[in-house]
């Protein structure tokens, strides 16, 4: 699956468009990570647990978007955008969306 966050795939022509595809995950971190984050909030510095968590959920969201595009029969996704929002304290939603197209 070709992906880009610009309107085109360079050096290729878009033949058909299928519309918007998207994937999202909502993830909560477990208590151990929460405790470490509480400590890090005193000392400052990177919260590695959270970085990993968000990375994992981002990959999961991308995977869902790709499987949706594959079902439509597309071979590329253009104009991909990410967005993060905290739904509740301790949980984050990762949303990724783009336009499924066929390129040649």
């Amino acid at each position: 699956m070709l992906m880009s966050n610009i309107e085109i795939i360079p050096n290729k022509t878009i033949v058909t468009g299928f519309g918007v595809v998207s994937g999202s995950t909502v993830r909560a971190k477990h208590a151990g990570r929460d405790l470490m984050a509480g400590l890090k909030n005193i000392f400052g510095g990177e919260l590695k647990g959270y970085t990993e968590l968000l990375e994992e959920s981002r990959e999961e969201a991308i995977k869902r978007m790709i499987s949706q595009a594959e079902q439509m029969g597309a071979n590329a996704i253009v104009n991909v955008r990410f967005s993060t929002s905290s739904v509740a304290a301790g949980a984050a939603e990762i949303y990724v969306y783009g336009t499924a197209v066929t390129v040649e």
Partner: peptide
């Protein structure tokens, strides 16, 4: 949106990097 230079593009890939950083208590 366009790469600098006139070379032909062979391949593209979506890539990303992220980080979570916390501020310390004093600050």
């Amino acid at each position: 949106k366009n790469p600098i230079g006139n070379d032909t593009v062979a391949h593209v890939k979506l890539s990303y990097g992220s980080v979570v950083i916390s501020v310390d208590y004093f600050k």
